[in-house]
Amino acid sequence: MNLEVLPEPPGRAPDLSDDFAGPALRDDVWIDHYLPHWSTPERSRARYDLDADGVRLRIDEDQPDWRPEDAPLRVSNLQTGNFSGLAGGERGTHRHRPDGLTVRTPAGTRLLWTPSAGRIDVTVSASLDEGSMLAAWLVGTEHLDPRDSGEICVFEIDAAAIGDGASTARIGIKAHHDDRLRTEMIEVVVPVTASEPHTWTVIWGPDGTVIGCEGLVAGRFEQAPGYPLVLMLDLFETDGRSADGSTYPKSARVHRVLGWDLTPA
């Protein structure tokens, strides 16, 4: 990991600040479904709890797969916006699969916090539960142009990659359907026990993308999507239901999110 220190945050209050301390999830910021237009509400809906330590994302034993075609894959996700076209169509946020996603639950356009450039600091505790992955992504809304589909992968942390004092994560850029970008993903080892609270930072704009962990630069990329992006915070179970039901719920925590919208005027 690069020992370069991350830049200081902007010298003003963040545009988005949430420690999830309220009695309910803020509906002015978060949609508690994972890409709901490609699935149905009972499958896309997140399982979570709010308490003094943030939001605990859960995978419950009775939780259905996100789509029957993708089984085994269960997700609890919070996202700051969404777009979809009409039922049966192919327009929608995050066309991330090559096997012909079509709209099942039209959701229209709901853009709650979708900057085209900015900075986000997100403090999390990843899951140690077998088969789990915690991730934070910024993905193109696609509501203006289907090419606006690029992704900044702030981090993806598999439970099996968490060590005592050092953990491995995937970070970088995914082009998806945006031919102005190129996929550029790397694995980094960060000096944290990722199951304990730690902070990831992403700074992106016309000069590129910087991703860091605990105040240090983890990766620099010369490219960045230049259109509205949705922040997605996800807990995945990817290897099927555990045979021993006592392992449920599988869980991870998001303690705090700070965001600055630096979209050029």
Rank of each mutant, 00 (worst) to 15 (best):
A175V: 13
V210M: 09
I157H: 05
M1A: 09
V75M: 09
R220N: 03
S149I: 13
I59V: 08
E142H: 11
W30V: 01
M185Q: 06
G54P: 14
S149R: 10
I59M: 02
A194K: 12
D244Q: 06
M185I: 14
E90P: 02
E61H: 11
A161K: 12
R97D: 05
D19N: 14
A117F: 06
Q63E: 01
T247Y: 08
M232K: 10
L144D: 15
V139A: 02
D65K: 01
V190H: 08
S167V: 15
V29D: 07
R119A: 01
R110G: 03
G88Y: 02
W30C: 03
S125C: 08
D99Q: 10
T105C: 09
M185N: 00
C213I: 02
A161E: 15
E61T: 09
R97T: 10
G89I: 13
G22S: 11
S39I: 14
P98E: 15
W137C: 05
T109W: 04
A126F: 01
P36G: 07
P225L: 07
R26K: 06
L134T: 15
A160L: 12
L134S: 10
P146I: 09
W200L: 04
L262R: 15
L138I: 12
F155D: 00
G89M: 08
Y227V: 07
R12A: 00
L258T: 08
E214R: 10
P106Q: 03
L16K: 05
R95A: 10
E8M: 10
V230C: 04
S127V: 07
L128G: 07
A175M: 13
A252N: 09
A46E: 00
S17H: 12
I211S: 00
T199Y: 07
R119D: 02
R256G: 08
V103F: 02
C153M: 15
P23V: 06
A265Q: 00
F20K: 04
A136W: 05
P249W: 00
H94Y: 14
S127F: 03
D121M: 07
A46W: 03
H37V: 09
R170T: 14
T209E: 10
